[in-house]
Measured scan of single mutants.
Amino acid sequence: SQHQEELPPPPLPPGWEEKVDNLGRTYYVNHNNRTTQWHRPSLMDVSSE
């Protein structure tokens, strides 16, 4: 059986914070524009500005 090492997730872009809601779900807060989202932001998402 193949065992895959879990890679650590990439660092969050500046201004982002990973949080967990009261149901144990992980979400991400963008403090730059005060938004939240479910999927993890990547540095590539942000660098397109």
Score class of each variant (00 low, 15 high):
43 L>F: 10
25 R>N: 15
29 V>W: 07
44 M>T: 12
31 H>C: 09
44 M>W: 04
2 Q>C: 00
28 Y>H: 01
2 Q>K: 03
38 W>V: 09
14 P>Y: 11
40 R>Y: 03
34 R>V: 07
49 E>M: 03
32 N>M: 10
15 G>V: 05
22 N>Q: 10
6 E>L: 05
24 G>Y: 03
28 Y>D: 02
35 T>M: 08
2 Q>S: 00
26 T>I: 11
31 H>G: 08
38 W>Q: 15
8 P>K: 13
42 S>A: 10
4 Q>I: 06
2 Q>Y: 13
23 L>E: 14
30 N>S: 15
11 P>G: 11
16 W>N: 00
27 Y>D: 01
38 W>S: 15
45 D>T: 14
17 E>W: 01
2 Q>M: 08
1 S>V: 02
49 E>W: 00
10 P>R: 13
19 K>P: 00
49 E>I: 02
36 T>L: 01
39 H>A: 14
49 E>S: 03
16 W>L: 02
13 P>D: 06
24 G>F: 03
29 V>N: 02
42 S>V: 12
39 H>L: 10
21 D>F: 00
31 H>D: 12
12 L>F: 00
24 G>H: 07
33 N>M: 15
34 R>H: 00
46 V>E: 13
7 L>A: 07
4 Q>E: 01
41 P>E: 01
45 D>G: 14
16 W>S: 03
30 N>C: 11
18 E>Q: 06
32 N>R: 07
49 E>Q: 03
14 P>C: 06
43 L>P: 15
33 N>L: 13
41 P>W: 00
19 K>H: 07
24 G>A: 06
43 L>I: 07
17 E>S: 08
29 V>F: 13
9 P>I: 05
3 H>E: 00
25 R>H: 11
8 P>N: 14
28 Y>C: 01
30 N>P: 03
41 P>C: 00
4 Q>D: 08
41 P>T: 00
16 W>E: 05
46 V>Y: 03
34 R>K: 15
48 S>E: 15
8 P>R: 08
43 L>G: 09
44 M>I: 08
31 H>P: 10
48 S>R: 13
4 Q>W: 00
5 E>G: 00
35 T>D: 04
1 S>F: 15
6 E>G: 06
49 E>V: 00
7 L>T: 07
34 R>Q: 12
37 Q>L: 03
6 E>Y: 15
33 N>V: 08
17 E>V: 07
23 L>A: 15
20 V>L: 09
40 R>S: 08
6 E>P: 03
20 V>C: 10
2 Q>P: 02
36 T>Q: 09
44 M>H: 15
37 Q>N: 04
49 E>K: 00
22 N>W: 03
15 G>F: 08
49 E>D: 04
14 P>D: 06
8 P>C: 08
22 N>G: 04
37 Q>A: 09
18 E>S: 09
11 P>K: 14
37 Q>T: 15
14 P>L: 14
21 D>G: 02
